[in-house]
């Protein structure tokens, strides 16, 4: 959910951008991270633990804890909590460790 009015902050959102999450079209804004855009669209589960497959969301949001790794435009292990959203991005849930091309 996005904050529409705030006593101190004014959110100057950039242009609306379309992106695809696991085959579903979503809208985010220029200047925000992939994780922020996903969260605003109600997506909290970003990855799964390697052994048990337990769902994981982000934890640190500063690119440190690696619980938000996803596949973006085919590249695995992207830290979506810091990676900026771009128009037309294809964001996918990653299964396993990912393969380096």
């Amino acid at each position: 959910m996005r904050i529409e009015s705030h006593p101190i902050l004014e959110f100057k959102r950039g242009n609306a951008l379309k992106f695809i999450f696991d085959g579903q079209e979503m809208v985010g804004y220029e200047g925000e991270t992939i994780a922020a855009a996903l969260h605003a669209n109600g997506v909290k589960i970003l990855s799964h633990s390697l052994k048990e497959g337990r769902p994981r969301g982000f934890y640190c949001a500063i690119g440190n804890c690696s619980s938000c790794l996803m596949k973006v435009n085919g590249t695995p292990n992207v830290r979506v909590c810091t990676e900026p959203l771009k128009d037309g991005m294809v964001v996918e849930t990653q299964h396993g460790k990912g393969v380096i091309k």
């Binding site: 959910m1 996005r2 904050i3 959110f11 959102r13 925000e32 922020a36 969260h39």
Partner: peptide, 8 residues
């Protein structure tokens, strides 16, 4: 999430 991106 909240203060930089305006998402609760």
């Amino acid at each position: 999430l909240m203060n930089q991106y305006g998402v609760v």
